[in-house]
Design a binder for these strands. Structure first.
Lengths: 228, 228
DNA sequence: CCCGCGCTGTGCGTTTGCGCACAATCGGCT
DNA sequence: AGCCGATTGTGCGCAAACGCACAGCGCGGG
């Protein structure tokens, strides 16, 4: 399918060589999801993988008390479902489409063929996995040692840095909802709301229409007790 | 070196075939650490891997405020340092010997040779990585949604199940210190102490000399609001 | 253009759990 | 046997943050 669409995406696909990308693209079967639709569901069997081609989705779980936990969110070029495909166990988390999503399905058989045929693919996959370990590990550290205030600041710094590419000023658009941030940092909506107000009051955050602006990532970073 | 010592260990090594285990063993250089000695240190460069042959060690970090966070603990057959070896970034966590440790060093060059030469080794490695992702992910969920009480119960259940192999009654020896448990579940020592007392009071935990006894894992599991 | 739904801000009472202090106890080790 | 460091039990006050309630506000669709 559309290997050209894969070319300029980010995420996992970006770490592949042109040949590997084409070998992957040739095995994808397109599939669409509507807003809110589950792409994979935690606890269920299933070993196919998905590559996000267009749109965004959230990887996470909901507790029985209704509290949402988001592990990561994914966009064009990102891979989903690799855990279950590799270890043949039930899905470890659910993935939900946020808006319309176009994905490419890769069967486990094709996935295993790619690994066997292309050493570069296997290496890229391993680096993808270690990247996930690093980021989840960091989150455990934050949850174990920091207050909501610092966890929020660090989450904003991460998002700001990702969208600002080197600059000190960052714009987040669309701005994340407080509920969204809360589910990322293990806090409730109101706590995030209060901290956001405080940061705005101190001039560390500004609103410009539909954008949430971080005038200075460096200044925001000063807020931390704990050096990042 | 001593491939026979590797044969009946658990952890990563146990997931290798006899041939793979021997290929690995042939490339290990033995090294010893004393109690409390750092095996690898977070933030530093270094891409060698270690296989624990004898003794135990803890993988974790300490916050600037002095709070300790333990990610996992490792024993004979477990692998350390694989993250940095795969992605060539600084060490993501520190590993500290708990008691005397005998380990085998594997250089990155040898590690990459093993991956290239043996498809089974690469697969086992990937499954090892996804296993870590599953367990850290579970910890994020617990930290985000559960109180100290439930986090502790679940940690005790994990340890109990690991040492009881199917039985409903479990013995932990040596018993974990409260400080130890606290650093695993993101709580402080006193909170753990109080919850342990409560569980003892309810008969869900007992002491038999140097053993901490869980008379019934099932009964302990009932304690959870949230089904595991 | 206006309505409605989703998001935001904030007040308030309650629970949780942290952190300090100190006493009691345990367990090795010589 | 006896000492000493590590571990445990517990009281207490306080800070954090949860959860509920409800009032604006804002944007997008009809």
């Amino acid at each position: 399918m559309q290997t050209d669409a894969l070319a300029d995406a980010g995420g996992f696909i970006a770490s592949l060589s042109k040949d590997e990308r084409e070998a992957l693209g040739a095995r994808l079967r397109p599939i669409r999801f509507v807003d809110g639709e589950p792409i994979v569901t935690a606890g269920e069997p299933g070993a196919d993988l998905y590559l996000i081609l267009e749109g965004r989705a959230e990887v996470g779980l909901v507790s029985v008390q209704g509290r949402e936990v988001t592990y990561r969110d994914v966009g064009p070029g990102d891979m989903i479902g690799e855990i279950a495909a590799i270890d043949r166990s039930p899905r470890s988390a659910s993935v939900t489409a946020r808006g319309p999503v176009l994905a490419g399905v890769l069967t486990r058989a094709d996935f295993e063929a790619l690994i066997a045929d292309s050493p570069g693919f296997a290496l890229a996959l391993m680096r993808h996995l270690t990247g996930q370990i690093r980021s989840i590990t960091e989150r455990v550290f934050e949850l174990s040692t920091m207050l909501v205030r610092d966890r929020l600041v660090r989450e904003l710094l991460r998002r700001g840095r990702a969208s600002a590419g080197g600059a000190d000023r960052a714009e987040l658009s669309p701005p994340p909802t407080h509920h969204d941030l809360a589910s990322r940092i293990g806090a409730n909506r109101e706590a995030v709301s209060r901290e956001m107000s405080r940061l705005s009051g101190e001039g560390l955050l500004t609103r410009a229409g539909r954008h949430l602006v971080i005038p200075s990532l460096a200044a925001l970073g000063e807020e931390l007790d704990d050096p990042p």
